[in-house]
Each structure stands twice: as structure tokens, then as C-alpha cells.
Design a protein around this nucleic acid. Structure first.
Lengths: 235, 235
DNA sequence: CCTAGCCAGTTTGGATCCAAACTGCAAGCG
DNA sequence: CGCTTGCAGTTTGGATCCAAACTGGCTAGG
């Protein structure tokens, strides 16, 4: 028997599902979340919905406007830049710590992520022009593969607060934004893959300083691209 | 009229009050939080209490054990070390960014913090041996002054996610732990003040690289001290 | 003597109910 | 003609209610 099993309640479940939907863009930024609707959709009463919304509020994903409901937080280009600034710093630290510490299993995961990114890019060439849904699927796969790559390094750093902090920052900028930048300029992918290759090289050598510098630059560049995309959108 | 005022509800209020009490140690680590008790204490029903607990759960301050209530999270020396590792990195970044950017107002705040730390240390010498309550008050003042110093630099970095992230990390390790280390070895204070002096010097010069290095080292050292204290406690 | 199972008491999780606050619109007033 | 004010409808915030799950102690059986 597990003595301290942190049983997850319906509220936790709802919070997680909503978080996924928001972060993946299925619930768009700025959308209003009505308690009654959510309760009906998930087949529960408003009580667990409210608790779930409180959790999302606490991690900054939604704003609760008193008596006016909750809305999904919007993100400006400026905020995006700032979030990636912090991420770059922390992922750089993670790279430095995980350099030379990757197990064979970790290394295999990195290779899988790279392979997924590469084959996804190849398949992109075969995509019919204007195939929006196909492109969307590819972008989702890219996003996941990319996330896998970054998370393996984070995990290898063996520092839970570091991993948790970066993940909460990842959630702060909905992945839907990353997708859009992919869809907007798919040539980001091969550049990203090349960056990753260099990072892996530094990680296994190991050259901790170089790994840090490279991952820092890579994340910073990703953030700058996303911010530029957001700026073009708003204009 | 403010069109989008994020009205704060009773749940927000409760969450904040509980957070303060936990972080300051008035509610000890590992304490069990019963909804009914909290409701009675704050004169509300259990509903807002539950929502507040959900928020604290989301930011990692408490664990909700299904049907068994919520308990204040415990922290090991290892976790403490890891949290300070991340803080050191981020505060170093904040120092680098805020170097040369301090307004006269910011600088004055830093001076106030330093003066508070210094006079508090002087008063410590006049303290009767065994005056536990007097020492506790001093430690609280030190803790606040120290926090002020660090927060001014964070604010001057003009990067909300950076500030928010560090603050959530500050909350991850209850200040009560920092107090205890102060109480345990008050000579930490003059060393800390000396560190601060050098940091301020680098900030106003400005020498961004040096400011980063110094603040990073300062936070890391603080964390190491806290972790050592925790280890002694557990043994 | 130790373990399994049962029962009462307690505490939480979720549903429902009611009052208060916000929204939008329309009518009244300057 | 524009601005304020009042009113109906909607939605949330908080309280209360009930069922389900956990805790601890006690008893019966091996």
C-alpha cells in the first residue's frame, strides 16, 4: 500500500485537461471560460470546475475577473521575449549540468527527437500546397519532438526545481504560438535540427560551457522568432 | 473606471494569507490544514477555503491528499540546494540586466535595506543572551530587509517573468528556514552586507558581468548555508 | 499473539441553492 | 443628441447539504 498517495481529484483532472487545451491552442487565447459551460462539457458540477480554474489562475494561465468569468491570458511579443530570456538562461544551466551525464537512454531519446524532426521536415516537402490540416498535424508533431529534445536535457540536469520552472515557463507561452512560427517558416526546422546536433555534440563530448552557450543561443533565437511572429500578427 | 479590474475574491485573499503564514513559518512545514478549521478561523464557509488550497497546491506550497486533507510541503536539504541553484542563476541574470539601470529611487531602496541589515546587526550585540523572542524579531527584520534588497534588483531588471519566477522560488523555500540560519549564525549578516556592498558597487559602476558573478555567488552561498543548516537539523 | 475485517466517527469531494455583482439595453433627463 | 439611470437577464461567489472515502480502534479468527 502506498502510504501517501496524492490522489488526484476531478479538479486536478479538469485543470490538466484545460491546461492542455489552452496550451495547444484548442482553446484560443483570450477565450472566455464560463463555469456552467465547462461543467456541462465535462459532465460535472460547477464546484470542481471552479477549483480547476483557481489552479489555472495560480499558475498564470487564466485571469479571473470578479463576477465576469475567467479568460485565457493573452501574451504580447514583449512578454514572449521576456519568457524566452528566462528560459534561455535556465536551459543553458540545464545543458551545463547535464553535459557528460546523459545516459544511453537519454541519448537515444535525443536521437529519436532529432529523427522525428528530420522526417517531419522531409514529409513537409511532400505536402500539397495549401494543405492546412496536414501542416497543422506536422507542426504539432514538430512541437512535441522539439519539446522532447528540450525535456530530456532538463531531466538529465537532475534538478527538479529547474525542470519544473522551465516547464511552467513553457506553459506560459502556449505552444500554439510555436506552431504558428513553424507553419509560418518551416525552414526553422532544419536550422533547429542543426542547432540540436551541435548541442548534442557538446553534451556528449562533454564540453559543458559550450553546451550551455549553444542551448542558450538556441532558445534565445527561438524566442526572438516567436516574438517577431507575434509582432507581425498584431500589426 | 477600470474596465478590466481583476477583482480579488475571498479565495485569493485566503490563499495570500495562508501563503504568508506558511512562508513565514507561523504555519509549520508538514502541518495539516483542515478545511473546517480554516473556514472557522477566517469566518467563511469551506468553499473559498478549498479554492484557496487549490491555488496553494498549484504553486506547490501544499500537497492535497485525497480525502485526507492538505499538508504543508516539507523541504529537504537537497531540494533547498536545487532551488537556490536556480535562484542564483536567475538573480545573476537580473543583476546583469539591472546593472546601470538603477534609478535613484532604486538605489535609495538598496541603501535602506543595507542600513536595516547593519543596524539590526548592531542591535543583535545588545541582545540579552537567550532572548529568543527578541532574536526572532530581529531575524524577521533581517529577512525582510534582505528580501527588499534582492527584490529591488529583480524589479530593476524589467522582466516580469524573471521577477515572478524568482519570487515563486523564494516562496518554495519558506523564509522560516532563512531565519533559522540567521539565528543560528548571526555572523552571516555582516558577510551578507559586505557581499551586498560589492554588488551595489558593481551595479552602479556599472559592471554587468561582475554584478552577475557576485550576485550569483552570493545567492549560491546563502543556499549552501541554508542547506547545511537543514542537514544538521535532520541529523 | 498476531492479523484480517468490521464499525463508528471524521473529513473531504461534489452537487445544489441563493444572493450579489456584472452586462446590455432602453427609457428618461439635461 | 448624448449621457445617465433603471431594469431584466445572466453569471459568478459563497453557503449548505449529502454521499463517499479515509482513520482508528475493536473484535473475531487463525
Amino acid at each position: 500500500m502506498t502510504p501517501h498517495a496524492p490522489v488526484l481529484s476531478r479538479a486536478d483532472d479538469l485543470a490538466h485537461q484545460l491546461q492542455v487545451e489552452i496550451v495547444t491552442g484548442r482553446i484560443p487565447l483570450g477565450a472566455r471560460l464560463r463555469q456552467e459551460d465547462l461543467a456541462a462539457r465535462f459532465g460535472v458540477s460547477r464546484t470542481p470546475v471552479r477549483e480547476a480554474l483557481r489552479q489555472l489562475q495560480a499558475i498564470g494561465l487564466v485571469d479571473q475577473l470578479g463576477h465576469r468569468g475567467a479568460v485565457v491570458r493573452q501574451f504580447s511579443a514583449e512578454e514572449c521575449r521576456n519568457v524566452y530570456l528566462v528560459r534561455a538562461e535556465l536551459e543553458g544551466l540545464a545543458a551545463e549540468r547535464s553535459a557528460g551525464r546523459l545516459t544511453g537512454y537519454d541519448k537515444a531519446d535525443l536521437d529519436v527527437a532529432q529523427a522525428l524532426l528530420r522526417t517531419g521536415y522531409e514529409r513537409h516537402r511532400l505536402l500539397a500546397a495549401g494543405d492546412e490540416s496536414g501542416l497543422a498535424i506536422l507542426c504539432e508533431q514538430w512541437s512535441q519532438a522539439n519539446e522532447l529534445f528540450h525535456n530530456v536535457i532538463l531531466a538529465a540536469a537532475s534538478c527538479p526545481p529547474l525542470r519544473d520552472t522551465v516547464q511552467s515557463l513553457q506553459n506560459a507561452v502556449p505552444r500554439s504560438i510555436a506552431w504558428r512560427t513553424f507553419a509560418d517558416d518551416p525552414d526553422i526546422i532544419p536550422r533547429s535540427v542543426a542547432d540540436h546536433d551541435r548541442i548534442v555534440e557538446a553534451l556528449v563530448k562533454p564540453d559543458a560551457r559550450r553546451a550551455r552557450r549553444l542551448l542558450h543561443a538556441h532558445v534565445a533565437e527561438t524566442g526572438a522568432t516567436a516574438a517577431r511572429w507575434l509582432e507581425r500578427q498584431s500589426s
